[in-house]
Protein backbone atom coordinates (compact mmCIF):
# COMPACT_ATOMS: atom_id res chain seq x y z
CA UNK A 1 0.00 0.00 0.00
CA UNK A 2 1.41 3.34 -1.06
CA UNK A 3 0.82 6.23 1.30
CA UNK A 4 0.01 9.39 -0.66
CA UNK A 5 0.62 12.92 0.52
CA UNK A 6 -2.16 15.49 0.06
CA UNK A 7 -0.55 17.00 -3.04
CA UNK A 8 -0.22 13.54 -4.56
CA UNK A 9 -4.02 12.93 -4.60
CA UNK A 10 -4.42 13.15 -8.42
CA UNK A 11 -1.53 10.74 -8.76
CA UNK A 12 -3.19 8.34 -6.33
CA UNK A 13 -6.26 8.25 -8.57
CA UNK A 14 -4.37 7.33 -11.72
CA UNK A 15 -2.14 4.80 -10.05
CA UNK A 16 -5.21 3.37 -8.32
CA UNK A 17 -7.00 2.98 -11.66
CA UNK A 18 -4.04 1.19 -13.24
CA UNK A 19 -3.88 -1.10 -10.25
CA UNK A 20 -7.61 -1.82 -10.45
CA UNK A 21 -7.38 -2.65 -14.14
CA UNK A 22 -4.59 -5.11 -13.54
CA UNK A 23 -6.47 -6.71 -10.65
CA UNK A 24 -9.49 -7.11 -12.93
CA UNK A 25 -7.35 -8.71 -15.63
CA UNK A 26 -5.90 -11.15 -13.12
CA UNK A 27 -9.44 -12.44 -12.40
CA UNK A 28 -10.57 -12.57 -16.04
CA UNK A 29 -7.93 -14.28 -18.12
CA UNK A 30 -9.47 -13.22 -21.46
CA UNK A 31 -9.31 -9.47 -20.67
CA UNK A 32 -6.40 -7.57 -22.13
CA UNK A 33 -5.87 -4.35 -20.24
CA UNK A 34 -2.13 -4.01 -20.48
CA UNK A 35 -2.17 -1.32 -23.17
CA UNK A 36 -4.60 0.79 -21.18
CA UNK A 37 -2.81 0.20 -17.90
CA UNK A 38 0.52 1.06 -19.46
CA UNK A 39 -0.96 4.32 -20.74
CA UNK A 40 -2.09 5.11 -17.22
CA UNK A 41 1.37 4.26 -15.92
CA UNK A 42 2.92 6.70 -18.37
CA UNK A 43 0.46 9.37 -17.35
CA UNK A 44 1.25 8.73 -13.67
CA UNK A 45 4.98 8.87 -14.33
CA UNK A 46 4.58 12.21 -16.13
CA UNK A 47 2.50 13.56 -13.31
CA UNK A 48 5.01 12.36 -10.73
CA UNK A 49 7.82 14.08 -12.60
CA UNK A 50 5.79 17.27 -12.79
CA UNK A 51 4.91 17.18 -9.10
CA UNK A 52 8.48 16.54 -7.98
CA UNK A 53 10.21 18.75 -10.55
CA UNK A 54 10.00 21.78 -8.35
CA UNK A 55 8.70 20.84 -4.91
CA UNK A 56 7.82 23.79 -2.72
CA UNK A 57 9.60 23.94 0.66
CA UNK A 58 6.43 22.92 2.49
CA UNK A 59 5.96 19.91 0.20
CA UNK A 60 9.55 18.97 0.84
CA UNK A 61 8.77 19.00 4.58
CA UNK A 62 5.89 16.63 3.89
CA UNK A 63 8.09 14.31 1.82
CA UNK A 64 10.82 14.47 4.48
CA UNK A 65 8.24 13.25 7.02
CA UNK A 66 6.76 10.59 4.73
CA UNK A 67 6.11 7.47 6.84
CA UNK A 68 7.40 5.12 4.12
CA UNK A 69 10.78 6.78 3.76
CA UNK A 70 13.68 4.55 4.75
CA UNK A 71 14.54 5.21 8.37
CA UNK A 72 17.73 4.85 10.36
CA UNK A 73 17.10 1.16 10.96
CA UNK A 74 16.83 0.49 7.22
CA UNK A 75 20.12 2.25 6.52
CA UNK A 76 21.91 0.40 9.30
CA UNK A 77 20.57 -2.93 8.04
CA UNK A 78 21.55 -2.36 4.45
CA UNK A 79 24.78 -0.41 4.71
CA UNK A 80 26.49 -1.83 7.77
CA UNK A 81 27.57 -5.31 8.74
CA UNK A 82 28.14 -6.75 12.20
CA UNK A 83 25.98 -4.00 13.66
CA UNK A 84 26.23 -4.36 17.41
CA UNK A 85 23.79 -2.05 19.17
CA UNK A 86 25.10 -0.46 22.34
CA UNK A 87 22.51 0.73 24.80
CA UNK A 88 22.11 3.14 27.63
CA UNK A 89 23.54 6.35 28.99
CA UNK A 90 24.92 4.66 32.17
CA UNK A 91 22.93 7.13 34.14
CA UNK A 92 19.20 6.74 33.79
CA UNK A 93 17.86 4.79 30.84
CA UNK A 94 18.22 3.63 27.27
CA UNK A 95 16.49 5.95 24.84
CA UNK A 96 14.90 4.02 21.99
CA UNK A 97 14.59 7.14 19.86
CA UNK A 98 18.35 6.93 19.35
CA UNK A 99 19.99 3.87 17.83
CA UNK A 100 23.70 3.39 17.96
CA UNK A 101 26.52 0.97 18.12
CA UNK A 102 29.58 -0.55 16.58
CA UNK A 103 29.37 -1.68 12.98
CA UNK A 104 31.41 -2.20 9.88
CA UNK A 105 30.93 0.16 6.99
CA UNK A 106 32.47 -1.34 3.84
CA UNK A 107 34.69 -3.49 6.06
CA UNK A 108 35.91 -0.63 8.21
CA UNK A 109 34.82 -0.49 11.85
CA UNK A 110 32.85 2.65 12.70
CA UNK A 111 30.43 3.95 15.29
CA UNK A 112 26.98 4.59 13.86
CA UNK A 113 24.41 6.72 15.68
CA UNK A 114 21.01 7.91 14.51
CA UNK A 115 17.45 8.89 15.30
CA UNK A 116 14.89 6.17 14.63
CA UNK A 117 11.24 7.14 14.13
CA UNK A 118 9.67 3.68 13.90
CA UNK A 119 7.65 2.24 11.03
CA UNK A 120 4.25 1.30 12.50
CA UNK A 121 2.15 2.40 15.43
CA UNK A 122 3.81 0.06 17.89
CA UNK A 123 7.39 0.88 16.94
CA UNK A 124 6.63 4.59 16.56
CA UNK A 125 5.48 4.71 20.15
CA UNK A 126 8.44 2.64 21.24
CA UNK A 127 10.78 5.00 19.37
CA UNK A 128 8.88 8.05 20.58
CA UNK A 129 8.55 9.19 16.93
CA UNK A 130 12.28 9.85 16.81
CA UNK A 131 12.13 12.49 19.54
CA UNK A 132 15.05 11.85 21.85
CA UNK A 133 15.15 12.49 25.56
CA UNK A 134 18.32 13.52 27.42
CA UNK A 135 19.32 9.85 27.70
CA UNK A 136 19.48 9.61 23.91
CA UNK A 137 21.95 12.47 23.65
CA UNK A 138 23.95 11.16 26.59
CA UNK A 139 24.13 7.75 24.97
CA UNK A 140 25.37 9.45 21.79
CA UNK A 141 28.03 11.32 23.77
CA UNK A 142 29.15 8.08 25.35
CA UNK A 143 29.41 6.36 21.98
CA UNK A 144 31.20 9.29 20.35
CA UNK A 145 33.75 9.40 23.15
CA UNK A 146 34.28 5.66 22.86
CA UNK A 147 34.80 6.00 19.10
CA UNK A 148 37.31 8.74 19.81
CA UNK A 149 39.27 6.55 22.22
CA UNK A 150 39.48 3.68 19.74
CA UNK A 151 39.99 5.73 16.60
CA UNK A 152 36.72 4.80 14.92
CA UNK A 153 35.05 7.22 12.50
CA UNK A 154 31.55 8.28 13.53
CA UNK A 155 28.57 8.21 11.15
CA UNK A 156 25.38 9.92 12.28
CA UNK A 157 21.97 9.64 10.61
CA UNK A 158 19.64 12.49 11.46
CA UNK A 159 15.86 12.13 11.34
CA UNK A 160 13.98 13.82 14.14
CA UNK A 161 11.11 16.29 14.52
CA UNK A 162 13.11 17.68 17.47
CA UNK A 163 14.03 16.85 21.03
CA UNK A 164 11.11 15.58 23.09
CA UNK A 165 9.23 18.33 24.92
CA UNK A 166 8.29 16.40 28.05
CA UNK A 167 8.32 16.95 31.77
CA UNK A 168 10.89 14.29 32.62
CA UNK A 169 13.09 15.27 29.68
CA UNK A 170 13.26 18.82 31.00
CA UNK A 171 13.84 17.72 34.58
CA UNK A 172 16.75 15.56 33.51
CA UNK A 173 18.35 18.40 31.59
CA UNK A 174 17.34 18.21 27.94
CA UNK A 175 19.20 21.40 27.11
CA UNK A 176 22.37 20.35 28.89
CA UNK A 177 22.30 16.97 27.16
CA UNK A 178 21.96 18.59 23.73
CA UNK A 179 24.70 21.10 24.50
CA UNK A 180 27.04 18.29 25.59
CA UNK A 181 26.29 16.25 22.51
CA UNK A 182 27.08 19.20 20.22
CA UNK A 183 30.21 19.76 22.26
CA UNK A 184 31.21 16.11 21.83
CA UNK A 185 30.75 16.47 18.06
CA UNK A 186 33.24 19.32 18.16
CA UNK A 187 35.72 17.62 20.48
CA UNK A 188 36.28 14.15 19.08
CA UNK A 189 39.47 13.59 17.12
CA UNK A 190 38.03 11.09 14.64
CA UNK A 191 36.21 11.78 11.35
CA UNK A 192 32.54 12.60 11.84
CA UNK A 193 30.17 12.48 8.89
CA UNK A 194 26.46 13.05 9.06
CA UNK A 195 23.51 12.57 6.73
CA UNK A 196 20.10 14.17 7.20
CA UNK A 197 17.85 11.42 5.88
CA UNK A 198 14.51 13.05 6.67
CA UNK A 199 13.78 15.75 9.19
CA UNK A 200 16.53 17.78 10.82
CA UNK A 201 14.55 19.32 13.66
CA UNK A 202 16.30 22.12 15.51
CA UNK A 203 18.59 21.47 18.49
CA UNK A 204 17.77 17.77 18.46
CA UNK A 205 19.40 17.58 15.02
CA UNK A 206 22.34 19.91 15.73
CA UNK A 207 23.40 17.55 18.52
CA UNK A 208 24.25 14.90 15.86
CA UNK A 209 24.71 16.89 12.65
CA UNK A 210 27.65 19.05 13.74
CA UNK A 211 30.11 17.20 11.55
CA UNK A 212 33.19 17.41 9.34
CA UNK A 213 30.90 16.74 6.39
CA UNK A 214 27.13 16.98 6.29
CA UNK A 215 25.08 15.54 3.46
CA UNK A 216 21.35 15.93 3.00
CA UNK A 217 18.96 13.86 0.96
CA UNK A 218 17.34 15.84 -1.86
CA UNK A 219 14.00 16.22 -0.09
CA UNK A 220 15.21 16.37 3.48
CA UNK A 221 14.96 19.53 5.59
CA UNK A 222 17.01 21.07 8.40
CA UNK A 223 15.55 23.95 10.33
CA UNK A 224 15.72 26.04 13.46
CA UNK A 225 12.00 25.47 14.04
CA UNK A 226 9.20 23.54 12.35
CA UNK A 227 7.25 25.56 9.76
CA UNK A 228 4.13 25.09 11.90
CA UNK A 229 5.90 26.40 15.00
CA UNK A 230 7.35 29.35 13.14
CA UNK A 231 3.98 30.18 11.59
CA UNK A 232 2.22 30.14 14.94
CA UNK A 233 4.81 32.49 16.44
CA UNK A 234 5.50 34.94 13.62
CA UNK A 235 2.22 34.75 11.71
CA UNK A 236 0.14 33.94 14.81
CA UNK A 237 -1.45 31.24 12.67
CA UNK A 238 -0.12 27.68 12.44
CA UNK A 239 -1.90 27.31 9.08
CA UNK A 240 0.63 29.64 7.49
CA UNK A 241 3.21 26.84 7.46
CA UNK A 242 3.65 27.14 3.69
CA UNK A 243 4.79 30.73 3.99
CA UNK A 244 6.97 29.86 6.98
CA UNK A 245 8.59 26.93 5.18
CA UNK A 246 9.37 29.27 2.29
CA UNK A 247 10.87 31.96 4.53
CA UNK A 248 12.97 29.61 6.68
CA UNK A 249 15.10 28.34 3.78
CA UNK A 250 15.13 24.84 5.17
CA UNK A 251 15.61 22.80 1.99
CA UNK A 252 18.76 20.87 1.20
CA UNK A 253 19.25 23.05 -1.90
CA UNK A 254 19.18 26.30 0.11
CA UNK A 255 21.40 24.89 2.84
CA UNK A 256 23.97 23.89 0.24
CA UNK A 257 24.04 27.50 -0.96
CA UNK A 258 24.40 28.71 2.62
CA UNK A 259 27.31 26.36 3.19
CA UNK A 260 25.51 24.54 6.01
CA UNK A 261 25.47 21.23 4.17
CA UNK A 262 28.26 19.99 1.93
CA UNK A 263 26.40 17.83 -0.54
CA UNK A 264 22.90 16.92 -1.65
CA UNK A 265 22.15 13.27 -2.36
CA UNK A 266 19.62 12.88 -5.22
CA UNK A 267 16.50 10.87 -4.41
CA UNK A 268 14.64 8.57 -6.80
CA UNK A 269 11.85 10.25 -8.78
CA UNK A 270 8.93 10.77 -6.43
CA UNK A 271 11.03 10.70 -3.26
CA UNK A 272 12.98 8.18 -1.21
CA UNK A 273 9.81 6.25 -0.31
CA UNK A 274 9.32 5.20 -3.96
CA UNK A 275 12.63 3.36 -4.07
CA UNK A 276 14.11 2.84 -0.62
CA UNK A 277 16.81 0.46 -1.88
CA UNK A 278 18.23 2.97 -4.34
CA UNK A 279 18.05 5.74 -1.72
CA UNK A 280 19.89 3.70 0.88
CA UNK A 281 22.58 2.78 -1.65
CA UNK A 282 23.05 6.43 -2.66
CA UNK A 283 23.44 7.41 1.00
CA UNK A 284 26.03 4.66 1.41
CA UNK A 285 28.05 6.03 -1.49
CA UNK A 286 27.83 9.54 -0.05
CA UNK A 287 29.10 8.34 3.33
CA UNK A 288 32.02 6.58 1.66
CA UNK A 289 32.80 9.65 -0.42
CA UNK A 290 32.71 11.96 2.58
CA UNK A 291 34.94 9.70 4.66
CA UNK A 292 37.31 9.59 1.70
CA UNK A 293 37.35 13.39 1.44
CA UNK A 294 38.26 13.77 5.07
CA UNK A 295 41.06 11.20 4.85
CA UNK A 296 43.35 10.86 7.85
CA UNK A 297 44.64 14.32 8.65
CA UNK A 298 45.33 13.49 12.31
CA UNK A 299 43.51 14.50 15.47
CA UNK A 300 44.56 18.10 15.90
CA UNK A 301 44.09 19.06 12.25
CA UNK A 302 40.72 17.36 12.14
CA UNK A 303 39.38 19.14 15.21
CA UNK A 304 40.80 22.45 14.06
CA UNK A 305 39.23 22.19 10.61
CA UNK A 306 35.86 21.20 12.06
CA UNK A 307 35.85 24.14 14.44
CA UNK A 308 36.97 26.51 11.69
CA UNK A 309 34.10 25.28 9.54
CA UNK A 310 31.58 26.24 12.20
CA UNK A 311 33.25 29.51 13.14
CA UNK A 312 33.15 30.61 9.49
CA UNK A 313 29.59 29.53 8.94
CA UNK A 314 27.15 32.25 7.95
CA UNK A 315 29.81 34.65 6.73
CA UNK A 316 28.12 34.56 3.34
CA UNK A 317 24.40 34.74 2.75
CA UNK A 318 22.33 33.13 0.04
CA UNK A 319 23.58 35.61 -2.51
CA UNK A 320 27.17 34.41 -2.35
Amino acid sequence: MTTYLDFEKPLAEIEGKAEELRALARRNAEMDVEAEAAALDRKAADMLRDLYKDLSPWRKCQVARHPDRPHCRDYIRALFTEYTPLAGDRNFADDHAVMGGLARFRDKAVMVIGHEKGHDTKTRIERNFGMARPEGYRKAVRLMEMADRFGLPVVTLVDTPGAYPGKGAEERGQSEAIARSTEACLTIGVPLVSVIIGEGGSGGAVAFATADRLAMLEHSVYSVISPEGCASILWKDAEKMREAAEALRLTAQDLLKLGVCDRVIPEPMGGAQRDPTATVAAVGDAIAAMLGEIGTPGRAALIKARRRKYLDMGSKGLAA
Binding site: V206, T210, S223, V224, R249, V260, Y310
Partner: peptide, 12 residues
Protein backbone atom coordinates in the same frame (compact mmCIF):
# COMPACT_ATOMS: atom_id res chain seq x y z
CA UNK B 1 16.71 30.42 9.95
CA UNK B 2 19.37 27.75 9.89
CA UNK B 3 22.10 30.34 10.44
CA UNK B 4 20.68 31.08 13.87
CA UNK B 5 20.68 27.35 14.62
CA UNK B 6 24.33 27.20 13.55
CA UNK B 7 25.15 29.56 16.41
CA UNK B 8 24.73 26.56 18.70
CA UNK B 9 27.86 24.79 17.42
CA UNK B 10 29.52 28.12 16.75
CA UNK B 11 29.17 29.38 20.32
CA UNK B 12 30.21 25.94 21.56
Amino acid sequence: GILSLMQMPRST
